[in-house]
Amino acid sequence: MDTTIAFIGAGEMAEAIISGIQPSEQFTNALTVINYSDKVKLNRLQHLYNVNATTDYEEAVRGKDIIVLAVKPKNLHDAILSIRPFLTKGQLIVSVAAGITLATIEQLLPKETVVIRAMPNTSAKVHASATAISIGTFATEKEVKLAINLFTSIGSVSVVNDDQMDAVTAIAGSGPAYFYYLAETMINSAIEKGLSAEEAKAFVAQTMLGSATRLSVSEKPANELYQEIMSPGGTTEAAISYLNETNSNLRFKEAIDHAYNRSTAIGQAFSPSKK
């Protein structure tokens, strides 16, 4: 029997998860999406992925096994208030809103509601998300397994403590954007040096894929892997030496720190103690 899922929100993350789990037999023809404010997005998802679409919150959530809160953090409070009257015992609430803690979500929901917080990324579209989940107060082994099955269908899953989720958000949640940013620079540089756009993209994409694969299977730390490529007086040494001289690694770490700090600030802004 299919596991039924309601997605509250029809944005990028909702689409990434939906497109990733579509081939799964467990979730086939069992998806409902609601987006009250943007019917264009809602209609697009309905036609592209053959999901059930509605603007009625009661219709969206009633009887569903899993309800995914896939809204922006600023909209989470209103989304929960909209579905709260129609929730019943035994439903699993999964929040993918960055920064909002389990304690905040649980306080907004009816007493003893089962909540799991998740941080997937948009690589879910190609079944390659690195997803972290943290487990709420009332979740049992059954609900944890259900959440793991959901996110395993779109990539890898790790269980972490809720206070580690801001770090996961800064690294894995935002991470694909960092690599696309780097890829853009490499592609543009390759084009400037005579490669076509198609050739540049192919070289960069395969190089990133190969590097990621090597990193994932190697027991060596990242710094040893790049040092292996650095011959004295060679091209790689010239590039890495320049990056070190300009403190590029420090600047990149500071960028990640900004993402982390923003995630913690969002959580603090919506914390029950701030109300």
Rank of each mutant, 00 (worst) to 15 (best):
L109M: 03
T101S: 09
A118C: 08
A130S: 15
L109Y: 03
V144C: 07
T104I: 00
A139H: 02
L87D: 05
A139E: 04
I148R: 10
P120E: 08
I80F: 05
K89H: 13
V96Q: 07
E112N: 13
D78F: 12
E106H: 04
G136N: 13
H77T: 15
A97F: 00
I83M: 10
I135T: 12
V144K: 11
I133E: 11
A147I: 06
S82W: 13
A139K: 04
E143C: 06
V94M: 06
K145N: 13
V94F: 03
S153P: 02
E143H: 07
E106N: 05
D78T: 09
L76K: 03
S123P: 02
P120M: 09
V96K: 01
S156K: 10
P120I: 04
N121Q: 10
A98W: 00
I93N: 01
I105M: 07
V96I: 10
I105L: 08
A79N: 00
I135Q: 05
A118V: 02
Q107G: 09
P120W: 08
H127S: 14
D78Q: 15
F138D: 13
V115R: 06
G136Y: 13
L76C: 04
E106C: 00
L102Q: 04
A79S: 06
T88G: 11
E112I: 11
N75I: 11
K89T: 14
F138L: 14
T131W: 05
E143V: 12
L76T: 09
V115H: 05
A147R: 03
A128W: 11
Q107F: 09
T152R: 12
T140E: 11
T131H: 06
H77Q: 13
P120D: 09
A97K: 05
H77I: 15
S156C: 08
T140Q: 12
S153Q: 04
M119F: 07
A97Y: 05
E141Q: 14
A128S: 13
A118T: 01
S129I: 05
L108P: 15
G90W: 15
K111V: 15
A130Y: 11
E106Q: 00
T101N: 07
T140H: 10
T88H: 15
I135A: 06
N75T: 13
Q91F: 01
L81F: 14
T122W: 08
L92F: 02
A98G: 01
T104C: 08
V94D: 04
L146R: 10
L109Q: 00
E141P: 14
M119V: 12
V157M: 00
M119T: 12
V126Q: 04
T101F: 05
L146D: 10
T113Q: 01
V144D: 04
N121R: 05
T101G: 05
E112C: 12
S82R: 12
T137Q: 14
N121G: 12
A98N: 02
A98R: 02
P85H: 04
S156N: 10
V126E: 06
K89P: 06
I83R: 06
